[in-house]
C-alpha cells in the first residue's frame, strides 16, 4: 500500500523527480522466534507483538532509487537503539563503529581500550552504529535490502 502511494506520487509529480528525496529508505523490524512445526523446530520472523530481553531482532532496511538518475556514493547509516545489542549483519562488507560513529571498521579490526588501560577486541555488543557504503551507484529504479541482527539487552 505504501509503495503504491509512493508510485502514484512519482507519477503525479514529475517535476519532483529531481527533488531531494528520490531515494526512499524504509526501516522494519522483526522478531526471530523458534516455533515447532510438524515436530520440527523452525525459525520464523514475526511481527513484534511481544518483545522481552534476550529476544533476537532482525532489522531490515529497504532502499529504492525512485529517481531518474543514478544515486552515487550511497551510504546507509543505522545507529543502534540503546536497548539492542548488535549481533551481526549478513552483508559481509558492512562496517561498524564502537565509538558513536567517529571511526569505522569491521568488528574484528576494532579494539576497545578498557578503563584500566587494557585493550581487547571489540565485541558485537560494543557496536554503536552500522554502516553500508556502496561502491557502485544505484541505477534509477533499482533498490535492495540491507539487514542486521540484534538482541534485546
Amino acid at each position: 500500500m505504501k509503495r503504491l502511494v509512493f508510485a502514484l506520487a512519482a507519477l503525479l509529480s514529475p517535476a519532483l523527480a529531481h527533488a531531494a528525496n528520490d531515494v526512499a529508505l524504509t526501516s522494519a523490524v522483526f522478531v526471530e522466534k523458534t516455533v515447532l512445526a510438524n515436530g520440527q523446530q523452525k525459525i520464523v520472523l514475526e511481527e513484534p507483538s511481544l518483545v522481552v530481553p534476550g529476544d533476537k531482532l532482525v532489522f531490515v532496511l529497504n532502499y529504492r532509487n525512485r529517481g531518474a538518475t543514478p544515486a552515487t556514493d550511497f551510504v546507509v547509516t543505522n545507529p543502534m537503539p540503546g536497548a539492542v545489542a548488535f549481533q551481526s549483519s549478513p552483508d559481509q562488507a558492512a562496517v561498524v563503529s564502537i565509538d558513536g560513529g567517529r571511526s569505522w571498521g569491521t568488528l574484528s579490526s576494532l579494539k576497545v581500550k578498557e578503563s584500566d588501560g587494557t585493550v581487547r577486541g571489540a565485541r558485537p555488543e560494543d557496536v554503536t552504529h552500522v554502516r553500508w557504503t556502496f561502491a557502485k551507484a544505484i541505477p534509477a529504479g533499482q533498490g535492495g535490502k540491507l539487514s542486521f541482527r540484534g538482541v534485546v539487552r
Binding site: I98, V112, K113, S115, T128
Partner: peptide, 20 residues
C-alpha cells in the same frame, strides 16, 4: 548490492557506556 568495506584499523578511545 554494491558494498565496499573500510579496512582501517582503529583503536577506540574508550568503550561507550551502554544506553540502558
Amino acid at each position: 548490492q554494491h558494498i565496499s568495506g573500510v579496512g582501517a584499523r582503529i583503536i577506540a578511545g574508550a568503550a561507550l557506556g551502554l544506553a540502558s
